[in-house]
């Protein structure tokens, strides 16, 4: 496979995953702003920060307004992380690699791209934002389903998986980092009572507010939520689960190419730390520092992979 092909497959998957994550973040932000205790626009600010779009937004808009935020995250062409831009970039990468992806994958991606602008405009005008966000998630699921059901289990599959799970790990870590203050034990000790709305919002953003109950029988405890999203091996969007997938994909590549580059060891090392991690200790030594370290390590792994597999020739 060409290095350029691997690069395009990887970014195609990253941008499809990012489109879905932006929709998830918006869903939570929107929900929280509907609640009576929302103190104005702090939720939207947190949403923008999680999406990595705060600075970009504020450079364009003086105030944080619901309509502006929704438009910026969904339809703004100048925002590289808007759903529209993500779909366009994913499609551009896919189109450059039509030979590498299956017809089912291409069709699901291409029709999402073609249908999105008109559908989004109509939904927003009709006050149907939640339906639109569902639609985006459906399309992302359709794409992943098409991929899992049709793609050959060779390097094409592995590079696509790497893109998906590096992006997902980054996203889960960002959501936690933006909300880490509600996850700190002091929050409860300080006596104010846990803000369960915030906790449930974090879970909703990863489609886990119900599955959480099956894993942790008691009420929302902040450290349980952190544990669920960081260390739990059953939760498919947890950092640990993402790293299980990354390690497996790198092992698959190593097996099919007959060579084990250093990035495989890097991923295994991060996974080992997550497997042996203890939530209490992480919280004691600082959740924010832990997450910042993780995000940096995740980025380092991404560039090691790009180097090892000649993404840039």
């Amino acid at each position: 496979m060409l290095g350029r092909t691997a690069n395009d497959l990887y970014w195609m998957a990253r941008y499809m995953e990012r489109a879905e994550n932006i929709a998830r973040l918006l869903e939570v932000g929107y929900r929280l702003t509907l609640l009576p205790q929302d103190s104005g626009n702090s939720e939207w600010r947190a949403t923008l920060r999680s999406a990595g779009c705060e600075a970009g937004y504020l450079a364009r808009h003086a105030r944080i307004e619901t309509a502006e935020v929704v438009n910026y995250l969904l339809l703004d062409k100048d925002n590289a992380s808007s759903v529209l831009s993500c779909l366009a970039t994913a499609r551009r990468n896919a189109r450059a690699q039509r030979t590498a992806i299956t017809r089912d994958m291409w069709e699901s991606l291409n029709s999402a791209f073609l249908d999105f602008p008109a559908h989004a405009t109509a939904c927003i005008a009709g006050g149907e934002l939640p339906q639109l966000l569902d639609w985006i998630r459906d399309r992302s699921a359709l794409f992943r389903g098409a991929m899992l059901n049709t793609i050959l289990r060779n390097d094409t599959f592995y590079f696509t998986q790497l893109g998906t799970f590096l992006e997902r790990a980054d996203n889960t870590a960002r959501i936690l980092d933006v909300k880490y203050y509600v996850l700190l034990p002091e929050n409860e000790l300080a006596g104010g009572g846990v803000d369960t709305t915030q906790l449930s919002a974090i879970l909703r953003s990863v489609s886990a507010h119900r599955s959480f109950r099956w894993v942790y029988r008691d009420a929302f405890k902040p450290w349980h939520i952190a544990d669920f999203l960081i260390l739990n091996h059953e939760m498919p969007r947890s950092l640990r689960s993402c790293y299980v997938e990354l390690v497996n994909s790198l092992a698959g590549l190593a097996a099919s190419y007959g060579a084990m580059p250093p990035c495989a060891a890097t991923a295994e090392e991060i996974l080992r730390r997550l497997q042996g991690g203890d939530m209490k200790r992480i919280l004691q030594s600082g959740l924010h520092d832990f997450l910042a370290d993780f995000i940096a390590g995740n980025n380092r792994l991404a560039s090691e992979i790009a180097g090892a597999y000649h993404f840039n020739g």
């Binding site: 496979m1 060409l2 290095g3 350029r4 092909t5 691997a6 390097d155 590079f159 190419y257 060579a259 597999y309 000649h310 020739g313």
Partner: peptide, 11 residues
């Protein structure tokens, strides 16, 4: 080296 080569993920 007197050959036409393509740049792949494995060199």
């Amino acid at each position: 080296g007197g050959q036409l080569m393509m740049k792949t993920t494995q060199g």
